[in-house]
Design a protein around this nucleic acid. Structure first.
Ligand SMILES: [Mn+2]
Ligand SMILES: [Mn+2]
Ligand SMILES: [Zn+2]
Ligand SMILES: [Zn+2]
Lengths: 148, 148
DNA sequence: CAAGTTATTGCAACATTATTGCATTTAAAA
DNA sequence: TTTTAAATGCAATAATGTTGCAATAACTTG
């Protein structure tokens, strides 16, 4: 359920990034925050059929550039989008958390609280960031597997 | 430079997986083994213009299913392909090595020798595998940055 | 080695996904 | 309220991926 304070938060978010507070943008933010997992462009498209496809692409790109959302790939290589939890901005994304791809329900989970272990690289490589995916069964799907 | 023993190795690889030794397949294998980084479908397509686009898709899919190559995503979300180093087969891929995406030259490196650290998950998630990417500057690009 | 069998290829058509240009609308600033 | 600039929606186009099918080439069998 979307609350008034959510709306205000979304409006503030758009303000902060000098993006106009338009109906399509607010609806995309509401939709994404109402979901516990990341959402793919195709899913967003069918969830909000009255928003033009092109507009949706442009909104997603703008939000990503501004650090309002981040992109995560699912097992098909399709981009899924999730709201950034912490204070990401245009120049600094801080989405170095673990992602989980469920092989059953295909949902993509942001595990914001899990820190990544240190990863070492061969000489010469200068890492600036890491992306880590785990794949397997999510809690819901592993529970179903046991129940059967 | 492709050697006779490479050709024989490729032919053996196809034999092993009950794939016919055809010209397009052997050329794809040669091309991939001659490159030090993973190669995207678009790149393969322009590197081997005389192989039909559809054929290339089918070859890549077949090779991936058989565990001859594995798929790695670059920073644009485009699939890149690289030969599997160890003994992957249809049912068991063993490509749990680190991948490096260069933000400058966009090349994707398979760091086959780097083992992944242990990664812990919240309760309920049952991981079956991990995919880890580092992104930053590859040795060539970081060297160029210093030289300037 | 020749004939038969089947996988693979290449082409055309189609489907899906993403981008561009531009006129119209809407939000914010003046 | 008027002005200005950003954002939207539509149409056209591009890029990417899939399907069906006839022709071809690889392997099998006698
Ligand atoms: Mn995330
Ligand atoms: Mn690899
Ligand atoms: Zn699941
Ligand atoms: Zn590089």
């Amino acid at each position: 359920m979307i609350q008034t304070r959510d709306i205000q938060h979304f409006e503030h978010l758009l303000d902060k990034h000098h993006l106009k507070k338009t109906a399509p943008r607010l609806r995309v933010l509401s939709m994404m925050s109402s979901r516990s997992t990341a959402t793919s462009q195709p899913d967003l498209e069918s969830l909000m059929q009255d928003i033009d496809r092109v507009t949706l692409y442009r909104i997603l790109n703008a939000f990503e550039e501004k650090g309002i959302i981040h992109k995560v790939f699912d097992l098909n290589g399709t981009a899924n989008y999730a709201l950034c939890s912490s204070k990401c901005d245009e120049h600094d994304h801080h989405d170095e958390h673990l992602h989980f791809n469920c092989i059953q329900c295909k949902n993509v989970y942001c595990l914001n609280d899990m820190n990544l272990p240190a990863i070492s690289l061969p000489a010469g490589f200068e890492p600036q960031g890491f992306t880590v995916y785990a794949n397997g069964l999510c809690p819901k799907c592993s529970k179903k597997a046991v129940d059967k």
